[in-house]
């Protein structure tokens, strides 16, 4: 079945009746996944939005508990509201990032309730890439820009229409909803690949042995220690828990945190095991390319290129990967 591009707006209207539909849009100059109906321009043709869709599942600030203390009792209430959401038009790299967050928040013996509630209520509709940015390198990271395997539904761009491939129950429900709009027809898209190629073979294992390498002594100095790379990264999932206190009551919330901030690892008493930008940058790269692979067997970097474009001082993870490759083994 296929969905004509001229009917995309109708299809989104239909979805929006049942759920909040997040679509790539340019809102006030910023490209991001915004609820359908927001004032802005639908932007299905751009390769990557500036802001990834991760806050559909992992909002920058998420209220967790309300609490209230009165004379001798304390009341704690978990905040469980979670609306149905659909992310429409996400790319394979962003789908990969959702796979990474699933691994973190749902596997290895711990399920994060706040995340899992949102995840159960989320339907993902991916669109294949028909072009890549010069900064894209997802296929080097094990992501296929032509197909997001774990999405609930894959749309394949065949020029004037999308071929609809529902893969899960949630995806089939969307297909059923769209039935009046769909036409018979099949088609394939010409597969694309990224121009920027990185050789990742053996890299995570090699990096694991390079914690003390002098490779870290160079390149970190330019970092200004801001959180841009981590906040626009689709896979970064670190958070801090904090409370907003109002006398006898308040709200416990969690909010994004960044390993690039000095305060991130500061302990009670003031000791900081990552005292300088060198240790912080090392942690970011090691987490992306080595530690995550060790625990979950995939790269925490999706190869979307957002940090490569947006780092204020052009610190480039792809150049770092090349540099690691050049280091002789045991060097």
């Amino acid at each position: 079945m296929k969905l004509s591009k001229s009917k995309v707006n109708q299809a989104l209207d239909m979805l929006a009746k049942e759920a909040t539909v997040l679509v790539p849009m340019i809102v006030d100059g910023v490209s991001k996944f915004a609820p359908w109906g927001t004032e802005g321009k639908l932007a299905l043709d751009i390769v990557n939005t500036l802001l990834p869709p991760k806050d559909a599942l992992f909002p920058q600030t998420e209220k967790m508990y309300k609490y209230k203390v009165s004379a001798e009792t304390a009341e704690v209430k978990e905040i469980t509201d979670s609306d149905k959401q659909v992310v429409f038009g996400l790319r394979s790299c962003d789908m990969h990032s959702i796979d990474c967050m699933d691994a973190v928040f749902l596997t290895k013996g711990y399920v994060d309730n706040f995340y899992s509630r949102k995840r159960e209520n989320l339907t993902t509709i991916a669109i294949n890439c028909t072009k890549s940015n010069p900064t894209c390198f997802c296929d080097s990271m094990g992501v296929d820009p032509n197909n997001a395997a774990s999405a609930d539904m894959q749309l394949i761009d065949i020029g004037d229409a999308y071929v609809v491939e529902a893969r899960t129950e949630k995806g089939k429900a969307v297909e059923a909803l769209w039935q009046p709009l769909l036409e018979a027809g099949e088609g394939t898209a010409t597969p694309i690949s990224c121009e920027l190629k990185l050789d990742m073979a053996g890299l995570p294992a090699k990096l694991r042995g390079m914690f003390e390498s002098d490779i870290w002594d160079d390149g970190y100095q330019a970092c200004i220690g801001c959180g841009t790379c981590t906040y626009i990264c689709p896979t970064c999932y670190c958070f801090d828990i904090n409370a907003e206190n109002h006398g006898q009551e308040g709200v416990q919330f969690r909010c994004w945190d960044s390993c690039m901030f000095s305060e991130y690892t500061r302990m009670a008493g003031g000791h900081n095991p990552r005292p300088s930008k060198k240790e912080r940058l090392r942690n970011r790269f090691m987490h992306k390319l080595a530690y995550f692979d060790e625990r979950y067997n995939k790269n925490l970097c999706a190869g979307c290129g957002r940090c490569v474009v947006n780092c204020p001082v052009n610190i480039d993870i792809t150049r770092f990967i090349e540099k690691v490759k050049e280091v002789p083994v045991n060097g």
Partner: peptide
Amino acid sequence: KCIRCYACRNV
């Protein structure tokens, strides 16, 4: 719109 990355401060 601010995402509080603190790039403005740090630079």
